[in-house]
């Protein structure tokens, strides 16, 4: 099979590490060769963060570069646009509609671009907008934004729904399992 490339992007602190960990575990259980590349340390402090998830028969590089990503799951609108160059033609963006202003915007040195998702659509990118925050809050916590977005990705991947539920059970602390399962279900069925 052709290697599938998924990028999970967002703002440091939004929970993208848990999402990639969950996805990685699931893919290994499904028997794929998997590589996941994460960002730790300084760049995590409110900066732009990117995680690469790649799976297939044999995966060498842990990175995804320009024109290679099949899916970009973005926790924030601007970040979807920032990493869009990594998308292959015909690729898909699943984006949380949250807007988080970066510091240059906050201090007035730059403006938060409007209509950036429509620009991507105009170039033939399939953009799925998700109000993941509202769904996460419905499930019980703003922190479940990551699970809601993973649920939207799950709709597009060839992995049975119950496997995802199983992986969530193994990836989050016991007291948060129920809430995260609910977030997944709400996200999946919306």
């Amino acid at each position: 099979m052709k290697t599938v490339n998924i990028m999970i992007v967002g703002v440091g602190g939004q929970g993208s590490l848990l999402a990639s960990k969950l996805l990685g575990r699931l893919l290994v259980d499904e028997g794929y060769d998997v590589k996941v590349s994460e960002v730790h340390g300084m760049s995590q402090r409110g900066g732009s963060v990117v995680t690469y998830v790649r799976y297939g028969d044999r995966v060498y590089s842990p990175l995804i570069t320009e024109g290679e990503a099949d899916y970009i799951v973005s926790f924030e609108k601007l970040e979807a646009a920032r990493w869009a160059t990594c998308l292959r033609p015909g690729g898909t963006v699943i984006v949380n509609t949250q807007q988080i202003d970066p510091m240059p915007v906050i201090i007035g040195k730059a403006t938060y671009p409007s209509g950036i998702l429509d620009e991507l659509r105009a170039k033939g990118v399939e953009v799925e907008e998700v109000d993941a925050l509202t769904t996460a809050l419905e499930a019980g916590s703003a922190k479940a934004v990551n699970i809601v977005l993973m649920a939207r990705l799950a709709k597009r991947l060839d992995i049975p729904r119950e496997k995802w539920i199983e992986a969530i059970g193994k990836s989050v602390a016991p007291k948060f399992v129920e809430m995260n399962e609910k977030a997944f279900t709400l996200g999946y069925d919306r």
């Binding site: 760049s43 024109g67 998308l87 292959r88 970066p102 510091m103």
Partner: peptide, 20 residues
């Protein structure tokens, strides 16, 4: 050769790390 890519024309402002 580079793979073909898609990108928005509008440049995304930088998001440097910062104090919480």
């Amino acid at each position: 050769e580079d793979a073909p890519t898609v990108s928005a024309d509008t440049e995304a402002p930088a998001r440097p790390p910062m104090m919480c």
